[in-house]
Simulated scan of single mutants.
Amino acid sequence: MGRSQQTFGKSEREKKRLKKREEKKKKMEARKLDAKENGKKGIEFAYVGYDGQLTDTPPDPSKKIKVKAKTIELGIPKKTEETEVFNPVRKGTVSFFDHSKGFGFIIDSETQEKFFTHVSGLIDEISEANKVLFELEKGQKGMNAVRVKLL
């Protein structure tokens, strides 16, 4: 004859599950009894206010906004081509450039932001403290200065 498949761990888990079920049942009965004694019914109807919170008072119908179903866009909105209004050529100063490693940083004269530049994006030979003209291009870790030339 085979042995029983009931192990100590299984029986302990079953005891815990039954105990949780009993506790849940007791809590539910206590809530029902408390509601009967205090006369609370809870919120019979829940309304969503204009701020997104649940309330027990209905919203003001005069503030209702009519939305056409055709204007609702589901999913990710299509990306539109953004035309840049500002001048793409910027002025700046070379704060650091290492010729042996082939990279450096340029500080924009208007915004004081620091942009990475690589030797492959240079038009003229640059060194530290040079005034330069450059354009920005999206790189892997942010905006990079490209087409860098001396003023």
Rank of each mutant, 00 (worst) to 15 (best):
S100F: 05
V94C: 03
K15V: 10
H118F: 03
F105H: 08
F97R: 01
V48N: 11
S109A: 14
K131C: 05
P88R: 11
D51E: 07
G142K: 08
N38H: 15
G92V: 08
K91Y: 11
K91A: 07
P59W: 01
V89R: 09
K19L: 05
E125Y: 01
K101L: 11
K114P: 01
P77D: 06
R21Y: 05
I107R: 12
N144D: 07
F86V: 15
F8W: 12
A30D: 00
S100Y: 02
K68R: 09
I76V: 12
K91E: 11
T83F: 02
L122K: 11
G2P: 15
R90C: 03
V94Q: 01
L136G: 05
Y47A: 08
S62C: 03
T55E: 06
I76T: 14
F134Q: 04
T83W: 02
M28K: 09
H99M: 08
G42P: 08
V89Y: 06
V48D: 05
P77F: 13
R3H: 14
T111P: 03
E84M: 09
D98R: 10
E110V: 10
H99D: 07
L18G: 01
S11C: 11
E12M: 12
D108M: 06
K79Q: 09
N130I: 05
E81K: 11
K32L: 12
P59G: 06
K138E: 07
Y47W: 15
G104V: 01
R3F: 14
F45T: 15
K63S: 09
V48A: 06
E125F: 00
T80F: 07
A35E: 06
E23Q: 10
K24A: 00
A145M: 10
K149E: 14
T7A: 05
R147Y: 11
S109T: 15
D124T: 13
G92Q: 04
T55D: 05
K19T: 04
E135P: 00
M1E: 11
K16S: 07
V89I: 15
Y47Q: 12
P58W: 01
E81D: 07
E137R: 14
S100N: 14
L33P: 00
M143Q: 10
T71D: 15
S4M: 06
L133C: 03
A46C: 07
T117W: 03
E84I: 13
E125S: 09
K101G: 04
R21P: 00
D98E: 08
K138L: 08
P77V: 04
E84Q: 12
Y50Q: 05
R90M: 11
